[in-house]
Computed example of a mutant assay.
Amino acid sequence: MSSHKSHGPLFTLSDVIYLILGVISTSFALKSFLVPNHFLDGGVTGISLLFHEVQHWNLGVLLILLNIPFIILAYFKVSKHFAIRSSVAITLIALILNFAHFPELTHDKLLVAIFGGFFLGIGIGLCMRGGGTFDGMEVLALMTFKKSSFSITEIILGMNIIIFLIAAFFLKKETALYAILTYVVASQITKYVIEGIEAYTGVTIVSANSEEIKKALVLTLNRGITVYKGERGFMKESFEQSADVDIIFTIVTRLEVRKLQNIVRSIDPKAFIFTNTVREPQGGIVKEIVKH
């Protein structure tokens, strides 16, 4: 029995738009760049392309068959809605691969790797924004993530390394190397499409005026904060001199970083501020970008 309950309608208008655009972008990447040039990618899509190249089996049928176990897993372990949306996306891509025509735009290997990965990444990201996926490897990575200390990105990378090594054995080593380039481009574009301008940034602030800064962040910027108790000072010339201080931590979107810095600087120009990228935030009041 799944521990995840589905809420809301099966499809919203935004879901449909994202899924359709994702399917079109993915199909375009495969038909116009990767398939005509015998290129590979990572995940189940990469395995399907590998079988298609080695055994000449139908790519659309392979995508459906190889994703079935992962869709079943998603149905019970993620959510019914996620599984159904993913099934629709995979089926539409398979139909387009078999019945639609896209022009072959280039045979330059570098351009194929870059632009094939670019449109594939857009397709993956849009499908995920629509609450589904067309590559079951992400579902397996999500399941493994819950039982390991590795991030989802690291798990998917590890799985794809195995795929690329197999590709190097059955196909040319050059093909495997270009597959890695395609995967890197696709993964970076996917990350941008999913996170977009809402990519999260963690901000840590150390200031003697922490009380004013806390009020400004919560009441003006409307952000939740976490406060650590610490000490400041410990300079080389005055090592013995220190003072208690509240160390403030908050998470904002990429566009809010500059606004936050301006607020803090207006209160304490000497405040120590540093930022770091926040990956896969969960819980608290941070909203989820990708729906499951």
Rank of each mutant, 00 (worst) to 15 (best):
V206Y: 03
V252C: 07
I68S: 09
H38Y: 13
F51E: 07
V139E: 00
T153R: 13
I205N: 00
V16Y: 08
L126W: 07
R129I: 07
Y192T: 12
I156K: 03
F99Q: 07
D246I: 01
G46H: 04
F274K: 09
A168E: 06
L126D: 05
D268C: 08
S149Y: 10
F39I: 07
V218H: 15
Y183T: 04
V44E: 01
S238A: 15
T182R: 01
R232Q: 14
S79C: 06
R85G: 03
I197R: 12
K147D: 08
N276H: 15
E154M: 13
S48F: 03
L19C: 08
T106K: 11
F169Q: 08
D268W: 03
G230T: 02
S210M: 04
I189S: 04
Y18A: 14
M128T: 12
G125A: 10
K109E: 10
Y178P: 11
T190L: 11
V257K: 02
R254D: 07
G8D: 10
L65S: 08
H81L: 12
L142G: 10
L105M: 05
P269C: 08
L111V: 05
N67E: 01
V184G: 00
F82A: 03
S187Q: 13
E237M: 05
T220M: 12
I197T: 12
G125R: 02
K291R: 15
Q261M: 15
S207Y: 07
A29D: 09
S6H: 10
G224V: 03
E280G: 12
F234Y: 15
H7E: 14
L217W: 02
S2A: 14
K287F: 11
I64H: 02
T175V: 11
G233P: 05
I24P: 00
I267H: 01
S210H: 11
I64Y: 00
H38R: 15
D108G: 04
I251D: 00
G202Q: 13
F272S: 05
F70K: 03
S148G: 02
I180Q: 07
D135A: 00
S242R: 11
F170R: 09
L65M: 10
I163Y: 08
L95F: 14
T106R: 09
V286A: 13
L21Q: 01
L66R: 01
S149D: 12
V206Q: 07
A208G: 13
L221A: 13
L10Q: 02
V185D: 02
I156H: 00
S3M: 13
V61S: 11
L140K: 01
V112L: 00
I96A: 09
F134L: 14
K109D: 07
G283E: 00
F33E: 08
L63R: 00
V61H: 09
P103E: 12
I156P: 03
G130T: 06
K146A: 08
Q241G: 05
T26R: 06
L126A: 06
I161A: 04
T144I: 15
N160R: 10
L111S: 14
K229Y: 05
Y18S: 10
V23S: 06
L21M: 14
G121A: 02
T106M: 11
I197D: 05
